[in-house]
Design a binder for these strands. Sequence first.
DNA 1: GTCTATATCGGGATAGAC
DNA 2: GTCTATCCCGATATAGAC
Lengths: 208, 208
Amino acid sequence: MENSISSSEERILDAAKKVFHCKGYDGARMQEIADEAGVNKSLVHYYYRNKDNLFQAVFEDAFSKLITKLNEIFFSELAFTTKIETFIGYYVSFLSQNSYLPLFILNGLYEKPEQIRTMLAKNQLLPERLIDKIKKQIKDELNLEIDPFHVFINILALSVFPIVAKPLIENIFGYSDEQLNQFYEERKTVVPEFILNALKGYEKKHSY
Amino acid sequence: MENSISSSEERILDAAKKVFHCKGYDGARMQEIADEAGVNKSLVHYYYRNKDNLFQAVFEDAFSKLITKLNEIFFSELAFTTKIETFIGYYVSFLSQNSYLPLFILNGLYEKPEQIRTMLAKNQLLPERLIDKIKKQIKDELNLEIDPFHVFINILALSVFPIVAKPLIENIFGYSDEQLNQFYEERKTVVPEFILNALKGYEKKHSY
DNA sequence: GTCTATATCGGGATAGAC
DNA sequence: GTCTATCCCGATATAGAC
């Protein structure tokens, strides 16, 4: 009875992503997810038993999608400045095409903070090691007089916030779709440049 | 019958702020708002007729609270570098004590983009003039080779994102309450410094 | 203005036929 | 696995007494 190549279960998960991403947990309707997937509402319960399970599946997917890429880049053997460029290029690209994702995740982190640790474990992620790596690289490689955690948060902020604030830029500053796309395109070069300029100011003049 | 100094209407609005800020539109319950205000559910409808009206009142309050302060600072006659310091000091302070506000507003902007223009008009806000002012000041005063809108968004990003990402810092990087407060306190000096360092890199070497 | 009672609807979830 | 029918609760909203 399948009206497409993919299985019902897959189509339900895909539909759930669409709906949850845009409307959040409370705003999403099981009926809408079923409609979107082209199946009966009961079938959604058949596969996922309840709304919470389904949401968790969607959230984990979104979260790990972002966090594993972040890990990949920052644990690589690239120079730190190259990492910044790579990271921002990738994130701005990916996020501007999935602009609902970051807000969805931030909301999820507020609503369901308990589940996070389990999820990190499941994906074998150790945030402390990430920070250690960054800390070491900022000290050894660049010898900067600035707290690496602030640097890390600044990188995230400059990459993610403009995406989260999309409706602000659209509706308050009246940017059209094309203007927005151009703006995001510019950020791929503007942001790394901005950060590297800032970091120059923290170089220790004499380390001997 | 008032069990406090403030009127029922005021207490209802205050209660609505608490509940909407934390749970969002869909997650909020009229019953909870009534309970929080210590009044009957019907009384909420008596004053605000329906959930949408009440939400709009709450949203406008939150939005104008943030935007008017932003306007005040950036339209003042301070030097641009001083504006940055003033703005970040104020925003980080205010937001870290109302950490639910920015996410609440970002969500509202996604869900109800239509109402924004009306609200801007009501508060007599002209975002274009704000950008013009910043543009002029960055050119005349500092003579920088960078798009002022990127600078503006960067300032916002560095101030607002760390607040929005509070549960991320708490739950993923395991910051305690004290550590978080200290982190936000540090940002009041770290962020202006970071931005001003970055801007130095854009100074035109010779403007004659 | 403030309450009680009630209408009405929608949404999550289950039972059970096929 | 997939559907129909239904249960049941909870939530918004209104009517109307005081």
